[in-house]
Simulated assay, not measured.
Amino acid sequence: MSLKTRAQLRAARALLDWTQQDLADRSGISSRSIKRLETGEGLLAIRLDTLEKLQAALESAGVLFIPANGGGPGVRTRE
């Protein structure tokens, strides 16, 4: 599945107990960009490769992105 919402991004970081800087270090995306994405400042200018890098970093650490299934998209950790 894929990263669809800024709430998923924040929740995924929280599951891993990562700061924005932790995610920046692991994804190659600046912490400033991550902050803008999470607060909604940069939603119109999100590049697909940025989302792919963020998703890859989070998934490699054990996060699974869950599709909308009646309650909206979500996240959980791999078992």
Rank of each mutant, 00 (worst) to 15 (best):
M1I: 05
M1W: 04
S2W: 03
S2C: 00
L3H: 01
L3V: 02
L3E: 01
K4E: 13
T5R: 00
T5E: 00
A7R: 03
Q8Y: 03
L9R: 02
R10F: 01
R10V: 13
R10L: 08
R10H: 01
A11C: 00
A11M: 04
A12K: 09
A12P: 07
A14E: 12
L15T: 00
L15S: 00
L15V: 00
L16V: 04
D17M: 02
W18K: 09
W18R: 10
T19V: 07
T19I: 09
Q20G: 14
Q21V: 11
D22Q: 03
D22W: 01
L23E: 10
L23V: 10
L23P: 08
L23D: 09
L23A: 14
A24N: 01
D25T: 08
R26F: 06
R26V: 01
S27R: 10
G28Y: 09
G28V: 08
I29Y: 05
I29C: 11
I29S: 05
I29P: 05
S30N: 08
S30F: 07
S30P: 08
S30V: 04
S31I: 00
S31T: 05
S31Q: 14
S31F: 01
R32K: 07
S33R: 15
S33K: 13
I34H: 05
I34W: 06
I34Q: 07
K35F: 08
R36M: 13
R36I: 01
R36T: 07
L37F: 11
L37Y: 15
E38I: 12
E38S: 09
T39P: 00
T39S: 14
T39Y: 05
T39V: 07
T39A: 04
T39I: 07
G40S: 07
E41C: 03
G42M: 14
L43T: 06
A45D: 10
I46N: 00
L48Y: 03
L48G: 02
D49I: 10
D49G: 06
D49H: 15
D49V: 13
T50R: 08
L51Q: 10
L51W: 04
L51C: 11
L51A: 14
E52V: 13
K53I: 02
K53H: 10
K53N: 13
L54Q: 06
L54G: 06
L54T: 04
L54R: 06
Q55H: 09
Q55W: 05
A56I: 00
A56H: 07
A56F: 03
A56M: 04
A57C: 03
A57M: 03
L58D: 01
L58M: 07
E59V: 15
E59H: 04
E59T: 15
A61Y: 05
A61K: 08
G62H: 14
G62R: 14
V63A: 12
V63T: 12
L64K: 15
F65P: 05
F65H: 12
F65G: 02
I66C: 11
I66Y: 02
P67E: 15
A68F: 02
A68E: 12
N69W: 01
N69D: 14
G70A: 12
G70H: 11
G72E: 12
G72T: 11
G72S: 13
P73F: 11
P73V: 11
P73N: 10
G74W: 03
G74H: 04
V75W: 05
V75M: 09
R76P: 03
R76Y: 04
R76E: 15
T77E: 08
R78V: 14
R78P: 01
E79Q: 07
E79P: 14
